[in-house]
Amino acid sequence: MAELTYAPDRWASAPAEPVIELEGVTKTYRTGTVEFQALRGVDLRIGVGEYVAIMGPSGSGKSTLMNLLGCLDTLTTGTYRLAGEDVGELDEIDLAEIRNRRIGFVFQQFNLLPSLPAWRNVELPLVYGHVPAAERRRRALEALDRVGLADRARNRPGELSGGQQQRVAVARALVGEPALVLADEPTGNLDSVSTADVLSLLDDLHTAGSTIVLITHEADVARRAERVVRVMDGLIQSDEVIR
C-alpha cells in the first residue's frame, strides 16, 4: 500500500510519483448495435497527496471516468495504473480486492447500511479486507474520531443528520488508509451548512496527506481543490492548477 506522506510541494513532484496514471483510455458502451464512446482517449496523472476536482456537465464522460478510476468498470482500450498496478487486465475478484485496498469511496447518496450502527458501517471495508475483529473496531472508532463523530459510533444512520451521515461515509472511505479517496458529488445531497462541513473535512484530509479526487459539477465545490480537470465530450478539455 502506498504511503500517504505529507508533501508540501505536491504538485511539482506529482508526475514523478503518480497514484493515478491513465494513458489513452477509451470507454465504449454498446447497446445492441448502437455504440457510444463515453471516453475518447484520456491521459491523466494524479500524484500522491493531490486534491483534484473533475468537472463536467452531464454526459461529458465525467461519471464514466469516475467509474474507471474507482475500478468499478473496465476500460475498453488504454492503460490504467493505480498506485503502480496495472488494473486493466484484472478480473472481477482482483478488482474487488483493489477497490478494497486502494480506494475509499464517498457517494452522493451516502450509501450507508441503515440497519448497522455508524461504527459497523465504517468497519465494512476492513471486513472484506480480512482484518481481525478487534482491530477493525479500534480503527473504525479512530476513523469516526477523525471526522468528529466519536460520540455517534453507536447511532444508526437514520438517527444522524445528512451532514453527519456523509461524515460517517468519509470515515468509512479513509478507514482502510487507501491510496485514493474518490468522492462522487459528495455534497450533492447536502444543505449549505453540511456542505461546508464535509468540504472542510476533505480539506483536513488533504492537509493530512490523502490523495483526493472529487467529482462535481458545482464550481464552488471544485474551487476547494488545488487542481481542476474539466471533461467535455469524452475528452479532457482543460487541466489547471488553481492553487
Partner: peptide, 16 residues
C-alpha cells in the same frame, strides 16, 4: 441492490 453494490464497491468479491 444498492447494499450489494455498496458492498461490492467496498471490496466484497462475488463469492462473498
Amino acid at each position: 441492490t444498492r447494499e450489494i453494490g455498496l458492498r461490492k464497491a467496498l471490496g466484497a468479491p462475488p463469492w462473498a
